[in-house]
Nucleic acid binder design. Structure first.
Length: 346
DNA sequence: GGGCCTAATATTACCATGGA
DNA sequence: TCCATGGTAATATTAGGCCC
């Protein structure tokens, strides 16, 4: 989550830059009252453009940087809203501008680039560079890779929230000191409170998950990739499955859960130390363009967990991260059917 | 591409506190 | 007093940018 003052600065700068593209034609209003939206955690504000006696209302989605996974999340969210969604971001590169345009995601950035596609107004500007002040915006510890591991551990196993820092560090596979940083951050951001003296409680789980899945895809998921391979896979090695050391993920897991998707990429999550054994058993060959991806199995499975796929929250995050329309639709189904269970407030 | 420098991030080791 | 726990300063590691 961006700090509020940075978010405000981004909005102001982007609007100002956008105004310069159309001098004298744009008026902006920001309603004072925060909106209450059913079944939607964000965005929490809207913006009204008045152009040539016509008016359009947008919900705002503010991002420091926009990436493929973030685009996937925007596609997931934009159809839930009663008004169109306007992305405000630091900088949209030429490539990204074309990509957003193709996916009909409207945006403006601090450099003056933008894409507006309404019946009475069409604007597409790209190629401008942003001002220096927005180049380095600090991130919260909670949404750095180790923090993301901890948040996942809490969402996957809610009981962990009231374990000791040492137990949390062990389960999430991070250092003890990291837990302290992350807990402090989550409290500061309003996702964690202490009740009845010592009990901890996770708040706004859906909002936290929404943020997690975006940051996971951008910051942790790429780090977990152990390699890409080619070969033919008929099934997972049974002995490794029994020990819960190897699971299907991504599109492959989505296919097994929903039967809707025909996977183009085979995704496997496995313990790093067993990679060589897996490659031998499945006869896989390293290939940077291969369609079999193996990721590091970074969490600790629950005792009673006997699934052959990774937890649905991870399947959902993996699908959203691809930014592919066909995966986004299946991700939506998985959310309604499975993910929502993990996000219930207790 | 390699070497260097710097900043960001993660871990380790230690300290303070509170309860038994 | 001892031990478990939460908290944090110091240190190590990693990543990214720049120059040659």
């Amino acid at each position: 989550m961006l700090a509020k003052y940075i978010e405000e600065q981004l909005i102001e700068a982007a609007i100002e830059a956008f105004r310069k593209n159309l001098p004298g034609q744009v008026f902006v209003e920001k309603p004072e009252n925060k909106l209450q939206l059913n079944n939607t955690n964000y965005p929490d504000r809207l913006i009204i453009f008045k152009i040539q006696n016509k008016e359009i209302t947008y919900f705002l989605e503010v991002k420091n940087n926009i990436t493929t996974p973030a685009i996937g999340n925007l596609l997931l969210n934009k159809n839930k809203l009663p008004h169109p969604l306007l992305l405000i971001t630091n900088h949209v590169t030429d490539f990204l501008a074309d990509n957003l345009k193709r996916k009909n995601i409207e945006f403006i950035d601090t450099a003056g680039n933008g894409f507006i596609n309404q019946k009475f107004l069409y604007i597409f500007v790209k190629g401008n560079t942003p001002p220096d002040i927005f180049k380095h915006i600090p991130k919260n510890q909670a949404f750095k890779p180790t923090g993301l591991k901890i948040i996942f551990a809490f969402l996957y196993n809610p009981e962990l929230i009231n374990k000791t820092y040492r137990e949390i560090a062990l389960q999430a596979d991070v250092a003890l000191g990291t837990v302290g940083w992350v807990m402090k951050d989550l409290t500061k951001l309003g996702y964690l409170v202490k009740i009845k003296g010592k009990q901890r409680k996770l708040l706004q789980k859906e909002k936290l998950f929404d943020r997690w899945k975006t940051e996971y895809a951008e910051r942790l998921h790429p780090k977990l990739l152990l390699g890409r391979f080619t070969g033919t896979i008929d099934g997972l090695p049974l002995d490794l499955q029994k020990n819960k050391n190897i699971l299907w993920g991504g599109e492959t897991a989505a296919e097994k859960i929903t039967n809707f998707l025909k996977p183009q990429i085979t995704t496997i999550y496995a313990k790093k130390e067993q990679l060589n054994e897996i490659l031998l058993k499945l006869r896989l060959k390293k290939d940077i363009d291969g369609t079999i991806e193996i990721y590091d199995y970074f969490w600790t499975p629950k005792e009673n967990d006997n699934e052959e796929t990774v937890p649905p929250i991870l399947v959902y995050a993996d699908l959203a991260a691809t930014g592919e329309q066909r995966n986004i639709e299946v991700a939506g189904e998985i959310f309604k059917k499975y993910v929502i269970e993990y996000l219930k407030e207790n």
